[in-house]
Every structure is written in C-alpha cells, then in structure tokens.
Write a protein that binds this DNA or RNA. Structure first.
Length: 208
DNA sequence: GCGCCGATTGGCT
DNA sequence: GCCAATCGGCGCC
C-alpha cells in the first residue's frame, strides 16, 4: 500500500482498511490476516486521541510523522497497540487496527497465543500484536520497509461494514469512529471501559 | 454467557 | 503518583 492511501483523514482511511491484509515478518516467519475492525484517531477535536491535548510528546511523535508508518505503543503494562499513521507529515492522525481474521502463519500465531482457538487469535488490538510479534521495535517503521506490510485485499461491500462508537476509551467514545465487518466471527468482543478510581465505566459499542 | 478482578510498565502531570 | 485505545481467568448464573 502506498503513502497516498494514508495521506488522508483517518476517518476516511479506517473504513477502507477493512478487507486489507496486514503481514508481519517478526521472528523471521510470516504471520498476518485480514483486517476486520478499525478505529480512527484524529489529530484535533478528539478527546480520545493521544494527540488530543499535549501536542507532540515522546510517545505520540510518530502520529505526526509520515503517512504509512506504524505507530506502536505499549499500555496497561502488558499490551502493544498498532496504528497506521495518516495525514501528511506534521499533521496527527492514525487508524488503530483492532482485529484480524487470521490467514498467514496460523501455527506460529497459535503458539504465541498459548493455544488459543483461531477465532480468538487476533480478535482484539492487544491479541493481534501478540500473535504477529509486533512490539516497540516496529514503532515508526514505514510499511513495506521494516517487518510490517499492508496489502490491498478483497474489499467488502459497503453493506457488510458496520460503524459504532469506539471501545475502551475513558473519553471520546461518543464519536462513531469504529468500523468492523459486521458478520465476521473475528471482531473483538466489546468490553467495559478501563478502571477509573476503582470504578469501571461502560463504553459504547455496536454489535461486535 | 456475563461481569468482576488483578496484572504490570512507561508516559505524562 | 496516577492512569491507560487490554486481556485472561474465575465465579456465578
């Protein structure tokens, strides 16, 4: 996939990434799958975005980088998340990859995921990075130049793609910036939001 | 199937 | 210090 594809607003790119194929060569083995769930994170007017309030920081700097690069960060002490950077250099924006339908290296991914059944290998943002071996080494890498690539796949029809609020955010979940393949068995199961002072807040989601 | 809970670390205030 | 774009396990329907 070329930089021009990503040199647009994240909420235009996110739905078009449904059906594309993400491939990793981490560990010297090809693993990957078809993207079935995405979320857009904007550079401004988006309380849920890492680029929302503090301008450029050490963590979010890649979100302002060249389109078509990978923004990988670490959270909850355990999990990596992968985003694909959108917008021209200097403007923040990214699409979070939330779920894949496993296609390549399923044996390897199953091993990395402690024998989980195929439908659960990549059905969440933390799960798919574990399955594909994605970590901070991929942060800032350009697609096709490092361990990660994204290829055009069979695009689903508009009617097969559903839209909803984003999942798991402490703020910004009211914006409908999540897209997913409605009938896919590989999308994430919605969960409650993060713990905030011992209280768990509900998070909006659609069918998923 | 659903809901609660702990794990665990870096970034930011 | 506080918090986070989460996950797996466990208890209880």
């Amino acid at each position: 996939m070329d930089a021009a594809f990503f040199d647009r607003a994240p909420d235009l790119v996110a739905p078009e990434l449904i059906g594309a194929v993400l491939v990793s060569t981490a560990g010297g083995v090809e693993t990957g799958g078809r993207i079935v769930e995405t979320e857009a994170y904007l550079g401004s007017d988006d309380a849920g975005s890492h680029a929302a309030t503090h301008g450029v920081t050490k963590r979010n700097a890649v979100m302002y980088g060249p389109p078509g690069s990978a923004y990988v960060y670490f959270t909850y002490g355990n999990h990596h998340m992968i985003n694909l950077v959108c917008e021209r250099e200097g403007v923040a924006g990214a699409v979070l990859i939330r779920a894949l339908e496993p296609l390549l290296g399923i044996e390897v991914m199953t091993g990395r995921r402690r024998g989980m059944p195929i439908k659960d290998l990549c059905s969440g943002p933390g799960k798919l990075t574990a399955a594909l071996g994605i970590d901070l080494a991929d942060n800032g890498s350009l697609l096709g130049r490092g361990r990660l690539s994204v290829y055009y796949g069979e695009r689903p029809s508009q009617g097969e793609i559903a839209r909803s609020g984003r999942i798991g955010l402490s703020s910004g979940h009211e914006l409908e910036l999540r897209w997913y393949l409605e009938k896919s068995a590989y999308v994430s199961r919605g969960r409650m939001g993060p713990v905030v002072r011992g209280v768990r807040r509900p998070t909006k989601e659609g069918q998923g």
